[in-house]
Design a protein around this nucleic acid. Structure first.
Lengths: 193, 193
DNA sequence: GTCTATAAAAAGATAGAC
DNA sequence: GTCTATCTTTTTATAGAC
């Protein structure tokens, strides 16, 4: 799974990415990472200064991946309205939640600048990128000219993030789908669809 | 703070409520609860079977409080649209986040039925109560008749939950305010405001 | 009913052999 | 570069005095 031709350092980072997504920072032990990566304790301390340092590398990599996915989605063809809706309705494993958003409820992450930074930057970047799409949509007269791009973009990202919370609470992806459908429906209406 | 005329059991539950909100379940140690409540270790094991049992009592109490707040808000005077908007724009300490919603990113909570139940029930109840308000608004012709009450209600609660995530990521309440304003604006438009 | 003392396990980190 | 052995602290839980 994790040790097919990858070097030790890469395996450690990949496993840490998965465990941070599944269990968060505080609830993930170094030992669990080492076991899953089939690596001895000494190797981690050779490549990293400790658990926090490894987690920082893992979060940076997850942040880059998430940003790349969003970048591809928002740069695709289609009208502005279509691209905003496609961000909302993109196929997601909603019970897994967001690997960046979930970190905001990990007290140790909030208290550790190098762990919080990738989270803040990634979510901030996505809101900004969506706001740009909305601005284009206003110029193209797809959205009403009174539309506040930053507010609409924030609402879209918040709906997705909050949809994860609702779905995980019910252990049912339908709760996520309902929230997203509600947002998409309102956006289509105001765009005159 | 916590030991002014309250009995030991009550103090333990109140402190546990606060710490679960601040740090979650896994990251809160029994010792931290006992210290803040000024209670010896033996007392906790006299009143509760252990940390999980105390946390379950604390979450039940927080769930009841949160539901009571929402109940009061949604039962207030005003049109349906006004009541939905008032839920969105209610004054909140947005950097603190939601004491129920945050638990969905605590792996131990998801794996422990007695801890997950109050979370699932409370968020489910709020979505249902908001959907009822929307249904009244459709009958009163405030909302378009094609409006899906469950979807709109889910979107409203998700916007709030996701707004917390955005605000905590940026450590800035403005991110929450923007998301909520975006949702309120779309709802007012579709309601012909 | 409340306390302290203690146990047993798990955590993060270090030392040093290979 | 990687491993195992060990140390220190913290965590949850139990025992038993008062």
């Amino acid at each position: 799974m994790y040790n097919l031709g990858m070097d030790t350092r890469t395996r450690l980072v990949n496993v840490a990415q998965d465990l941070l997504w599944e269990r968060g920072y505080a609830a993930t032990s170094s030992k669990e990472i080492l076991n899953r990566a089939n690596v001895g304790q000494g190797s981690m301390y050779h490549h990293f200064s400790g658990k926090r340092d490894l987690a920082a590398a893992a979060l940076e990599q997850s942040a880059a991946a998430m940003r790349a996915e969003a970048e591809a989605l928002l740069a695709a063809d289609g009208t502005s309205v279509e691209r905003v809706i496609s961000y909302l309705e993109r196929q997601r494993d909603s019970l897994r939640g967001c690997r960046m958003g979930r970190m905001t409820y990990d007290a140790d992450v909030l208290a550790t600048p190098e762990l919080l930074r990738p989270v803040a930057e990634t979510l901030g970047w996505i809101v900004g990128a969506l706001a740009d799409v909305v601005r284009q949509g206003i110029e193209a007269r797809e959205f009403r000219h009174e539309t506040d791009p930053e507010q609409l973009a924030s609402m879209v990202v918040a709906t997705v993030q909050g949809g994860y919370v609702l779905a995980r609470a019910q252990q049912n992806p339908a709760a996520f789908d309902a929230a997203v459908a509600g947002a998409a429906s309102l956006i289509r209406q105001q765009a005159g669809g």
